[in-house]
Design a protein around this nucleic acid. Sequence first.
DNA 1: TGTCGTTATGTTAATATAAGCATATTGGTG
DNA 2: CACCAATATGCTTATATTAACATAACGACA
Lengths: 112, 112
Amino acid sequence: MPGLTGFKPGCKVWLEKEGAVFGEGLYDLLSRIERTGSIAAAASEMGMSYRAAWGKIKVAEKRWRVKLVFTRVGGDAGGGTSLTGEAKMLMERFRDLRDGVGGLLGLQQTDS
Amino acid sequence: MPGLTGFKPGCKVWLEKEGAVFGEGLYDLLSRIERTGSIAAAASEMGMSYRAAWGKIKVAEKRWRVKLVFTRVGGDAGGGTSLTGEAKMLMERFRDLRDGVGGLLGLQQTDS
DNA sequence: TGTCGTTATGTTAATATAAGCATATTGGTG
DNA sequence: CACCAATATGCTTATATTAACATAACGACA
């Protein structure tokens, strides 16, 4: 059987509530924002447009009915963004889940 | 924080190899085919068209480079379909993975 | 007051995925 | 031989998701 050797398990985890989801993509984006202090810089690092990153955050905030970022516009650096406590909380819970499953089964996380 | 209570973990697993994937959808379809002996009947049960079910199987066979079903056309019952050993093998491996993860963490599988 | 980097959004274009429609073929059976 | 239920496939339509484009506003600072 040609294609039936060497296949491997794939796994993806997320937090959800009433249609709202929090997965690897949002986690990655938020952690970069936390580190760089900027949505634009985080988006650039990930190879995505600012528009796309901003849209992801807005959709998540609407679906979760919670504020995820504090944003400042204008100023010396042009502006900046930091995370809310709710965002940090979701990130922590997500990290626990992801690392728990991954560590337990030895699976590599697959985003997309 | 309005939306931050009562969220639950979501999890999805699959088998993969070089772009080919075997997940819950295909597993469900194949097990119904095995039971009913017909792609048409299995598709109908799942509320999908025969065309869609057939297409899923064809794509999977091409990607996995393996035959998943034996089909007979014409005859008393009009025709019929049964599974190949490779299909049964993939199903078994998938079931092991899914039930292992699900049982271990108490998560409900989410398809789509 | 003009520049610069960042946030803020509407709009449109491009893809990707899924759904639906139509039609041909097959081969026991009455 | 006509019929029936199931397989086999091409083609078109819808829908959903993502990417890209285009501006506007803001505020510290030189």
